[in-house]
Design a protein around this nucleic acid. Structure first.
Lengths: 135, 135
DNA sequence: ATAATTGCAAACACTTTGCACCTGT
DNA sequence: ACAGGTGCAAAGTGTTTGCAATTAT
């Protein structure tokens, strides 16, 4: 059980090559130039998530889910910053995560799940643009 | 602009009366015994979210969104903690907000909007329950 | 040989939109 | 009178499923 197919290899390869990015199913399909069917992408992602090879993120805005190759350890747990203006998604490094995480855990007894939590606000770029225009 | 209708009053009333719960659109429709159309519920919730009277949560993967009356002073700047298990909403005090806020702003040039940001995770209660069961 | 995988089309669940009608001001 | 609200039906999204054909072992 678990055959090695051209498609499953392409998908995993693509995810690994883009381990620094968050990919939607659309991204993956486009990245593979539609050499792999959408259904197959979904099914492979499901499998990879089950084996913890890939991590699924559900952004709190109800859009489509994002997937990221989980290189066991390094960038495993991190927060997300989503710009309300340009829509870009940023990653928040681990040291700060721990600080935030620990603070809330210690002081409020609440265990934050970074895979579910998204900070909304304005990114550097959009902030400076806003100042210039000052609308 | 913004007329007071029988339906909009029923919806807000119901949300306020159940401010301790997180309600799906289905819950609201059922609670109002289908006196209000589903579309109207959606549209009113959208309006209430925009005015920060109600907060929208996307808790489950593929499931429906939840709404909760949260007119906790539109003006006050604080974060929210939402428990993924019991659905309870907690408020995060200002000192910590400033710390988190300042950190992300200073180190990442990202200005977080606390009114838009919700931390998802597990509350003290649900955490301890989970330990007991230890599944 | 035979068990798993693929991918189309169709089903799905939740949400949004178009439009004709109704209601509040 | 007319801006705004309502609700049906239809369209739109993102995801899952049925199934016949294909592919890996």
């Amino acid at each position: 059980m678990n055959y090695k197919t051209k498609q499953s290899e392409l998908i995993e390869e693509y995810l690994r090559a883009n381990a620094d990015r968050h990919l939607t199913v659309d991204d993956i399909c486009a990245g593979l130039k539609n050499e792999v069917g959408r259904t197959t992408v979904y099914r492979n992602l499901e499998r990879l998530c089950k084996s913890y090879t890939v991590r699924k993120y559900i952004l709190t805005d109800g859009g489509s889910a994002c997937y990221q190759y989980a290189d066991c350890g390094t960038q495993s747990r991190h927060f997300h910053l989503k710009c309300l203006k340009c829509g870009r998604l940023f990653h928040l490094e681990c040291e700060h995560l721990k600080e935030i995480d620990g603070h809330i855990r210690a002081e409020h007894g609440f265990a934050v799940d970074p895979t579910r939590t998204v900070f909304y606000g304005l990114c550097e770029n959009c902030l400076s643009q806003q100042k210039e225009v000052s609308e």
